[in-house]
């Protein structure tokens, strides 16, 4: 039998050995466009800062407003020219503290159970439930707070709780933040190398002792980052408080009372008929600027912690 050697094509013969870099315009144009798209995201942040800062500046330039009053007073009543942010901050703080008091212990416990105890099967049932909770829009949580949790509280505690109150909003906000808290904590716990657990077991520790005294402390910074993100979520959450915690600004830390948070105030005022360039309009941007700055600092902090934590076990 004769071999068909010719069936294999000969190599291309290059006359010139030209391996110089070529300008590939299409390639460069594409890279340029993609780069611009990436840079565009920075402009979003810049425009947030610019818009909020600009309008807030107009607010503070108004003769009725002083920065000292804004940051020092506890009365917020735009109708009579009172702009003390503490009246709104107090409600934001109260609802956030309640929310975290729910979300941090529950979320962390859930994470410990999922990462240290649950079998694959139990996990595959419980984890999706948390994911469903995480996917429910906050307006639905608001309905739940007003229509279910508040009546429940009122039937348990009695009618000293108003129809609108910070307790119910805070509790439901805690449930809303729980999945985030638990999934971030679980990531942190899973990042703890198994060798530490084995070391603990080999010393004769129970699963619980290893989990709570070795794994959790080792994941501490990751858990801290989760808590910080939780705080930022709670401070920025709008719909639950807008629906369930009341529509009057009031300086109070009593969770049984109704009071309006920073976010709920923005939502209520801007939802109505609001004329541009009024002091009310500008005041909303001053509040939003505060919100933005607080959450920005919190987010940066948690990212920094997560990054350091990741390096620790690499």
């Amino acid at each position: 039998m004769e071999l068909e050697v010719k069936s294999v094509a000969p190599p291309t013969t290059f006359r010139l050995m030209n391996l110089q870099k070529k300008m590939r315009f299409k390639e460069q144009a594409i890279e340029g466009v993609l780069f611009l798209v990436g840079v565009l995201t920075i402009f979003i942040t810049l425009s947030i800062v610019f818009v909020l800062g600009n309008e807030a500046l107009l607010f503070f330039e108004d003769p009725e407003v002083t920065l000292a009053e804004f940051l020092g007073s506890t009365k917020w009543a735009p109708a009579i020219g009172e702009f003390g942010i503490w009246a709104l901050v107090s409600a934001t703080l109260t609802t956030s503290v309640i929310a975290l008091a729910v979300a941090v212990p529950l979320g962390l416990s859930a994470a410990i159970y999922l990462s240290e105890y649950a079998s694959l099967r139990v996990r595959s049932i419980l984890k999706p439930i948390l994911e469903i909770l995480a996917g429910i829009p906050t307006v639905v949580y608001g309905y739940f707070a007003l229509m279910f949790v508040t009546p429940l509280l009122r039937s348990v505690v009695g009618n000293q709780i108003g129809v609108y109150n910070m307790l119910s909003a805070g509790l439901v906000m805690g449930i809303m933040i729980l999945p985030l808290m638990s999934s971030m904590s679980e990531d942190a716990l899973n990042a703890v190398p198994n060798s530490l657990r084995e070391a603990a077991y080999a010393l004769g520790s129970t699963r619980f002792e290893a989990a709570l005294q070795v794994v959790v402390p080792a994941a501490f910074s990751g858990i801290g980052a989760a808590i910080i993100v939780g705080v930022s979520r709670a401070v920025g959450e709008t719909m639950i408080v807008a629906i369930a915690s009341g529509a009057t600004s009031k300086f109070t830390f009593n969770p049984l009372e109704a009071a309006e948070t920073m976010t709920a105030h923005i939502a209520r005022i801007s939802g109505g008929d609001l004329s541009y360039n009024s002091i009310d309009y500008n005041s909303l941007f001053a509040i939003a600027l505060m919100l933005f700055l607080v959450t920005l600092v919190l987010n940066l902090l948690s990212q920094w912690i997560v990054k350091r934590f990741r390096e620790q076990y690499e």
Binding site: L196, Y201, A202, T206, A218
Partner: peptide, 20 residues
């Protein structure tokens, strides 16, 4: 098993001190 491990200790291939 906890008592078993309490009586039979172990040292691992890679050093694994606790981060304490």
């Amino acid at each position: 098993p906890v008592e078993v491990r309490r009586r039979i200790g172990m040292v691992f291939q890679k050093p694994n001190p606790f981060p304490k």
